[in-house]
């Protein structure tokens, strides 16, 4: 029963409560960094790192943090992990860090993370929180990766910079522009609605 429960906490982040496609949270990075599949994946991994660690810490400290200052406390914890992630990327993956631009530091204000801290981590044990935030993080990464791959394939004919089609490929430029992000996201949300409604 306990295991089943954890499994559910983990799985809901993918479909039933997917943060991007169902809850429609964290749309700013989802739209901005999905120009290539690699950018999307890196962003997703950074969010998983920040989300999981800050949720678990919030959950461990939940009884210690006074209710009145909880948001301030959550924000400090989140900002700490975001800065660590940002410094790590700058030191070890400078190229990627450059192409993600300001969106890594901006994870601080990503509402998925504060949302999970407030709605879940501050009320549940750290084991449950760990599975919940890992699931949410993976759901976010999955949504970004699909959108990033879609945009990269349509706009450059490549995925992870590996060319898929021959030289005859006519790129669909709009997909790499902001408008393409909205189009792609719209289609994905529509498909998600179909899936959720059928259930």
């Amino acid at each position: 029963m306990q295991n089943n429960n954890l499994n559910q906490e983990f799985k809901k982040g993918f479909i039933a409560q997917n943060p991007v496609l169902v809850q429609l949270l964290g749309l700013c990075p989802a739209l901005a960094v999905t120009t290539t599949a690699l950018n999307a994946l890196t962003m997703g991994l950074a969010v998983i790192f920040v989300l999981t660690l800050s949720s678990v810490i919030v959950s461990v400290l939940r009884k210690l943090i006074p209710y009145q200052v909880r948001i301030a406390a959550f924000t400090i914890i989140i900002a700490t992990f975001v800065t660590i992630a940002d410094l790590f990327l700058k030191a070890n993956l400078p190229e990627l860090s450059k192409s993600l631009g300001p969106y890594v530091p901006l994870i601080v204000v990503n509402c998925i993370i504060l949302g999970r801290c407030e709605a879940f981590a501050s009320k549940n044990s750290f084991v449950r929180t760990f599975f919940d935030s890992l699931g949410m993080g993976l759901g976010f990464t999955f949504a970004l990766l699909v959108l990033g791959s879609l945009r990269e394939i349509l706009s450059t004919g490549a995925i992870f910079s590996i060319n898929l089609f021959g030289s005859g490929f006519e790129p669909m430029l709009v997909m790499i522009l902001p408008a393409g992000a909205f189009l792609g996201l719209g289609v994905m949300v529509a498909v998600m609605n179909l899936i959720v409604r059928k259930k």
């Binding site: 400290l61 943090i65 006074p66 301030a72 406390a73 400090i76 914890i77 700490t80």
Partner: peptide, 15 residues
Amino acid sequence: MVLVLGLIAALSGFF
């Protein structure tokens, strides 16, 4: 409130 927030901030700064 002051104590907890101060402690979290100090730990964060240290890390």
